[in-house]
Amino acid sequence: MERQRLSDYAVGLFDVLPSRKSVKKAIKLGLLTVDGAKADTGLWVQPGMTLEVMKDEKSAKTYELKVPVVFEDDYLAIVNKPAGLTTSGNSFKTLENTLAFNLEPGNQPDAYQQPKPIHRLDHATSGLVIVAKTKAVRVALGKALQEGQISKFYKAIVSGDTPSHGEIHTPIEGQKAHTTYKKVKSRSDKLYTLLELSPITGRTHQLRIHCAEEGFPIVGDKLYGGVIGPGKGLFLCAYRIGFQHPVTGAAIDAHIDLPQKFNRLLKD
């Protein structure tokens, strides 16, 4: 890695920081952080640093959409994102903008006014998202995610029949990608199969790409050739997530029921 100062390295790294001027402004406002701490323009970037850019909380607006809360304490929460809602980004109607409406305000000294998702689900994917309510927890969970210490499990309905279990190692955009899967059940006509999937790596659209390349695309996946059959939307749900609480040390194992459309499609 070529040695660079933060003010140069961060240009174009995020959509909201397209220029050196925008980077300097974000640093001045305290919106650009390195390992959870406010950044300095002259900082030399080192391998392993976690860089994040945050919204200006003073101007953040709340999207008043009710979202199911599966777990919550003063440090973090786990929420069930509905399909069709973007996790975060520049638009107003995002999961991130609903969090202040759905969660209790944090009482810790470094609590966010607007809690932050620590990972994303695709717009079309429903299911569990971990949310940090404090800056320290966001850094800790971000590192746990990078180090593979957060276990994520999905269920998907795919087209046709599949092997009973398997592993997929097909690279995605030149990067290593690893998914494990096992069959849960198939319809008697073998038209659809319910799989449990676990992404060992975290590439964009990894599960969707891997299923499609193995010959059993996820139902409703218009982008990767999935059958657009009965039911609406993508049949992919992040139904279970497990990790160690970064503050209390407790083992967290959260899970949800699948959307009703899954049960309807699997009926013989």
Rank of each mutant, 00 (worst) to 15 (best):
A136W: 01
P163V: 03
I118G: 01
R208E: 03
G166T: 02
T193H: 10
Y239E: 10
V45Q: 06
E104A: 11
F216E: 01
K135I: 04
E96C: 05
Q149V: 02
F243D: 11
H245A: 08
F216R: 08
D189V: 08
S188C: 10
Y154N: 12
F92T: 11
S91T: 09
G229A: 15
A83H: 12
L234K: 11
T180Y: 07
L65S: 06
V67D: 02
G174I: 11
N263T: 13
L265V: 11
G127A: 07
V137W: 04
D253T: 09
S126Q: 03
D8K: 15
Q260E: 10
D189T: 12
Y239T: 04
R120G: 04
K182E: 15
L223S: 06
T201N: 05
G229N: 13
A212D: 06
Q108F: 01
L31Q: 04
A37W: 00
G225H: 10
V70L: 13
K81G: 03
L234F: 07
I252G: 10
I27Y: 04
F216H: 13
N102K: 07
Y181M: 04
R3T: 14
G231F: 02
V139E: 15
A132P: 00
P115G: 09
E104N: 13
G215P: 02
Y112L: 13
V11T: 07
L141M: 13
G242K: 13
M54V: 03
L103H: 05
T87N: 09
A144V: 01
D56W: 05
P246F: 03
K38T: 11
Q146G: 06
G215D: 08
S126D: 09
P18Q: 08
A132L: 04
F216M: 09
A60H: 09
P117V: 02
L121M: 06
L31K: 09
K38G: 07
T87Q: 12
K135L: 03
L6F: 05
L95A: 06
I256S: 13
L76P: 07
S88V: 04
Q46I: 11
T125C: 12
K222F: 06
A77C: 05
V79S: 10
T193D: 14
A132Y: 01
Y154E: 11
S126T: 06
F71Q: 00
M49F: 06
V23T: 08
G127W: 09
V67A: 06
V11F: 03
G42E: 13
I130D: 00
A136M: 11
T170Q: 14
L197K: 04
L266Q: 15
N90I: 06
Y181D: 05
E147L: 10
G174M: 07
L103D: 05
A212F: 01
Y154G: 14
H210I: 05
A26M: 12
T180S: 15
G233N: 07
V131R: 11
A83W: 03
R20K: 15
C237S: 05
G84Q: 07
H205K: 00
S91V: 14
R120K: 12
L265M: 14
R5S: 01
I78A: 04
L191I: 09
K182S: 12
L32K: 09
E96T: 13
D221N: 14
S7P: 00
A144P: 05
G36Y: 09
I118Q: 13
P115Q: 02
Y112E: 10
K183H: 06
Q146C: 03
